[in-house]
Write a protein that binds this DNA or RNA. Structure first.
Lengths: 117, 117
DNA sequence: ACACCGTTTCGATGGTTGTCGATGTCGACA
DNA sequence: TGTCGACATCGACAACCATCGAAACGGTGT
């Protein structure tokens, strides 16, 4: 625990009260929308879920790229997920491993928290 | 009140295990991605938040349409949010009132539930 | 019936995005 | 050093989408 606050964390933690609490501001909306938009494509959603459900919390591209599109397209989508702050990647040897950005899930889940709790 | 399980509810409730649990299937991914995509536009996100945070759980279009785009565009985005199963609308007198679809928030929040709980 | 107010639909347009094949980069291994 | 395999980037194309103005629609009140 307590990695000293990575860049990805900063990117993924921008926000704000739950959407149900108070109207989201114009600038926050831009940033949060980008995160949701990243999950708004079926291929990206499957890639994200493949990584999120992988044993050990990470997977190399070769293990998750079987989603019905070409290899460059997979790479393109993984980049989008990285840029949205949802995934991190690291090269080890010949392979590139992807894992969830630490706070990504919590941030989005909190934004969508139902009204009462 | 208490509409007896609307079509919107059916659309919004289908799914599936958290994304972190097991890889989401191809058809589920299509449907879930559509929900996230609906929130993936800044204007829509603000409209959604405006409705979600409104007192009494609902608001008429005239109360939430101040998001910097023309009125037909507002209507266009509200339709997208309706079609995604996130909002419901009802006409009363001259005005149309929007409110959250009952299970929309819980469904999405559950999908994004962090790994341990 | 009529005029008014607010919502929805329509058609056009410019920008964004998903997809691919070809090519480039980086590490491993011989 | 040269080759191979794993990913990333590039350039191009087609499909999609947000946006607008204009026009049609649907209730309300006079």
């Amino acid at each position: 625990m307590s990695n000293p606050r990575s860049l990805l964390d900063v990117v993924a933690t921008p926000c704000c009260a739950p959407l149900t609490r108070s109207p989201i501001g114009e600038t926050d909306a831009e940033r949060v929308a980008a995160m949701f938009r990243a999950l708004g494509d079926p291929v990206r959603l499957r890639l994200f879920s493949n990584v999120a459900s992988a044993e050990g919390g990470e997977a190399c591209v070769c293990d998750i790229q079987d989603v019905g599109v070409s290899q460059p397209t997979v790479s393109h989508h993984l980049r989008k997920l990285r840029e949205a702050g949802l995934l991190e990647s690291e090269r080890r040897g010949s392979w590139v491993y992807y894992r969830l950005a630490p706070s990504a899930l919590r941030v989005m889940s909190d934004l969508l928290a139902p009204v009462d709790g």
